[in-house]
Nucleic acid binder design. Structure first.
Lengths: 231, 231
DNA sequence: TCAAAAGTGTTTTACCTACACCCATGA
DNA sequence: TCATGGGTGTAGGTAAAACACTTTTGA
């Protein structure tokens, strides 16, 4: 950096809101902080962006270091830049979010000692979080609610094979509402992005449900095209 | 800021994409830079965020200093943080956008000498802009396209009194498509957010069109409520 | 009287909504 | 055989899409 640019005591960080679905609950990934300020508090995984990395790269790196999770596709949510959001000075944070599949709940191992541990926490009973992380979380919840209403992103949270009822429950959870079973199934199947499998649910004490898979290619064709105003 | 926080040679800036509608064209506000790098180039109005101001505040201040425009409601668009986006070092920028009404095209007077002048430029024939500002502009155009498809934000660009045809032309311009006149009018009037005035267009050499006003209160009631998934 | 834009209605189609019963399975 | 969720269809309403002609005005 050349000298003729002003220098500020400014710091940027990244914070990640990672949603998962487990045991019938919507959860987010939290860490227990191992550093001041807010030592011992729970917080979103977040840390400083390095000088020589893009913020997208930083988001991936930080998530890995604090949780051991790798190669998660995250989307930028919003940038929070109130003056007093950090007790020690001016820290602007770029929030990212992602929805991921919890295959068998692998253990989360922070690589960085900055996090004492990382764990999944149900969104319904979140405690007070460090900094303005509660606000960041709330904004991300609004975001996925809005998004799920026009793109079936819920698949990202489900196991590879799932039943329509599981899918419906997830929608109901995220949207905090009840949906009509027949209408829900009709609509989902109509999208044409579900592949019905020959397989059925196993080990349930009631009629076993058909399993479905999500068809990524058809999904992309349907939802990545331009949104169009109705003529 | 306390000493125990790492210090980076990092700088944040704000860049503003301000849309206006004039002479039947969609325009954005550009400045001519009066400082290196890119001295003499055209760029989005943008500058450094100060230490003791929130980024929202910074956006308003910077726009005022570079253009003389005040009290414009801007919305955060996206944060751009590639490593090489600024030739002199690491600069992360938060982009904001707004759509404003050009009442009689007041002259734009930069308060800061950093901008030699500020002016409106049609979006269809934009030259190469400084930094990655072309990319920022393109992203903001996508954003208003998407947004106008579910919220009638086009009003913000129009004069207080406007005809339905003017409104339709603006939609067609932003969406880059032709719309059916009858369907367009039906849909717009059905929203119930337009007040028909007793007044007609004047000074045109054809049948004068009825003027309409935008009903802010009804608009707010309609579009600020929660989006709901269809049951 | 001509040019130019204003203004207007109907039919078809697609999708959303509401709603209730029988079926298959394991305990 | 019972409890539990799986699975299915139809009718009514609303909104979008397609489509063409008459009216008004000033030049």
């Amino acid at each position: 950096m050349q000298e003729n640019l002003p220098k500020f005591d400014s710091v940027f960080t990244i914070d990640c809101v990672i949603f998962g679905f487990d045991e019938g609950e919507l959860k987010i990934l939290l860490i227990e902080r191992n550093e001041e300020p807010f030592k011992g508090w729970w917080a979103l995984p977040g840390y400083y962006v390095e000088q020589e990395e893009s913020i997208d790269h930083g988001a991936g790196r930080i998530l890995y270091e604090l949780t051991g999770l790798r190669d998660i596709y995250m989307e930028q949510l919003y940038t929070f830049g109130d003056v007093d959001r950090h007790p020690q000075g001016r820290v602007i944070t770029v929030a990212y979010f992602a929805m991921i599949r919890l295959n068998g709940q692998k253990e989360l191992k922070p690589v960085n000692t900055y996090a004492r541990k990382a764990f999944w926490h149900p969104v319904n009973e979140l405690p007070k979080l460090a900094y303005d992380h509660t606000k960041i979380f709330e904004r991300s919840l609004e975001k996925i609610r809005r998004k799920i209403s026009y793109q079936p992103i819920a698949f990202e949270l489900l196991p590879e094979k799932f039943t329509l009822t599981q899918l419906q429950h997830l929608y109901e959870l995220i949207l905090n509402t009840k949906l009509d079973k027949r209408n829900f199934r009709k609509k989902m199947l109509n999208y044409g992005i579900l592949k019905e499998l020959d397989e059925k649910q196993r080990g349930v004490s009631y009629r076993a449900a058909t399993l479905y898979k999500f068809d990524k290619r058809k999904y992309a064709r349907l939802f990545q095209k331009e949104l169009s105003f109705n003529k």
